[in-house]
Amino acid sequence: MRVSPDFEDTATLGLRSDVVATVLEDGAVLLDLQTKYFYALNPSGWSIVQHFEAGSTTATVEAFARSCGAPDDGAVRAFVSALDAYGLLETTSAPTDSDAQAVPGTWAAPTIERQPEPLQRVLVSAFDPSIPLAE
C-alpha cells in the first residue's frame, strides 16, 4: 500500500492512522497495527517520522535534515522511500505544527529496521498473544 511509486516532493504525507509510535532511549519504534510488523528507528529516523506524524513533505524533511547537519547524499529521501515502501505513509491534508525535535548529538543517516517477524495476528486469547495450538 504505497502512496505512489514516485511521490512528489511537495505532496503532504502523514504516518498512517493505524501506525503507533513510541520513543526508546536510542530512537523509537513504530508498530503497524494492520500488519503487526514493528520497526526500529534511529534518532534521526525518529526526528523525520515526527514530521510525518503532523503531516509533512519530502522537501520539508530534507530541509529539516540539512538544518541538523545532514549531508545532501540522498539518505533522507531513501529513508522516506523506505517508509513508503513499508506502507507506513499516506497522503494527508495540509501539515499541522510538528513537535519534531532536532536530533541530539551528531546527525547520522536515518535508518529503519523492520523486525523479521510480525506480532501474531491470531492469538490464543485477549491475554495470551501466542500462536493458537490445535485443540
Partner: peptide, 11 residues
Amino acid sequence: LLKQIAIPSDR
C-alpha cells in the same frame, strides 16, 4: 517483552 502482550488494533 512486546511479544508477550496481546495488543488490540486500536491506536
